[in-house]
């Protein structure tokens, strides 16, 4: 076991957890992330490999699946991100590669992104100040990339109208979370 201490994306001692008005924003550092792409002509094999790990069929464009904390969401043609609890799946990339072999290209993305959860009665009003998504129409499981604070982020609807996860490029976590908090204060 190595002896290097991790740091959260915002770099504070504790992950951000803030309630403003009816909405709460929480930094979620304890998730691992990896991308999986099907190799040429291997869409079927890739889907099987994905199912083996996440216990679900590969999500369609604009969708995610969730099975016991293992979440997969579509990010591009024949390409998915898989999100898993860090403690049990730090090496989710290796798990996916082992399952898919030469049928898949897998890339570790854990360090590239920071997850923020936005929940509460007025969560969609907050999102309306941040990005062009029609958040009130997003069904539970909807997942899409959008631009928040000029930064490409993934927004996953965990529960329609009230709970969303936002995956933010890690280096921009400070700017984007600041923008979210500003919007929360604005509508509070």
């Amino acid at each position: 076991m190595h002896d290097l201490a991790p740091l959260t994306a915002l770099g504070a001692d504790a992950p951000l957890h803030e309630t403003i008005g009816a909405v709460t924003l929480t930094e979620q550092p304890d998730f691992a992330l990896a991308s999986l792409s099907a190799r040429r002509g291997c869409e079927k094999e890739a889907a099987i490999a994905l199912r083996k790990i996440i216990g679900h069929a590969a999500p369609a464009p604009g969708r995610s699946t969730n099975s016991q904390g293992l979440v997969a969401f579509w990010v591009g043609p024949a390409q998915w991100f898989v999100e898993a609890p860090y403690n049990s799946h730090e090496h989710i990339a290796d798990e996916l590669k082992a399952a898919g072999g030469d049928a898949v290209s897998v890339t570790e993305q854990t360090g590239g992104w920071a997850r923020f959860d936005l929940s509460g009665e007025t969560a969609t009003e907050v999102l309306a100040r941040l990005c062009p998504l029609d958040a009130p129409q997003m069904q539970s499981g909807a997942a899409t990339r959008t631009s928040i604070e000029h930064t490409g982020c993934f927004v996953i609807c965990r529960e329609a109208l009230r709970a969303f996860s936002i995956w933010v490029p890690r280096s921009s976590a400070g700017s984007v979370s600041h923008a979210i908090e500003t919007a929360m204060r604005s509508i509070a």
């Binding site: 591009g76 043609p77 899409t144 990339r145 631009s147």
Partner: peptide, 11 residues
């Protein structure tokens, strides 16, 4: 014409 979905699925 060609458009790149830079802020989306990179198609």
């Amino acid at each position: 014409e060609l458009w790149f979905h830079e802020g989306g699925d990179r198609s």
